[in-house]
Amino acid sequence: MTETIIIKDRNIDLLRLASEISGEVITLCEQCGICTTSCPMAEDMDITPASIMRYTQLGDEFVLETRAIWYCASCFSCTVRCPRGIDLAKVAEALRQIKLRKNQDYLKIDELKEEAEELPAIALVSAMRKYTG
């Protein structure tokens, strides 16, 4: 299967920023796709984990607008299997952080209302750490 990637907003700064925040060498990725086959969320993502890596390598800011970076649940399935030793969970976290550090929260916590009193603290705390900045 081939996938055509059209680079819309090329921004080499994005690659640099994502590399700095994650501490990972993102350019090491050779697109083998093991991350995608390991990912329990891939089936519901709009782009695959491997594509997240590719868009980031190319500095395409489109990656920041994908659902995929938020659907990553930091389960580290890809991390333990990447043959290049890249910690993809850290890369996804970096991409989320790029948004969150600009005050662009993924979760509107004021809209939780009654739901919040039913949920255990472990769910609320983890969601707020991942979804809000």
Partner: peptide, 17 residues
Amino acid sequence: LDPEKNVLSEYYPEINR
């Protein structure tokens, strides 16, 4: 209010941050 539940999280969910 239902004190059996975590009302504080309902009205002030940001405490979890």
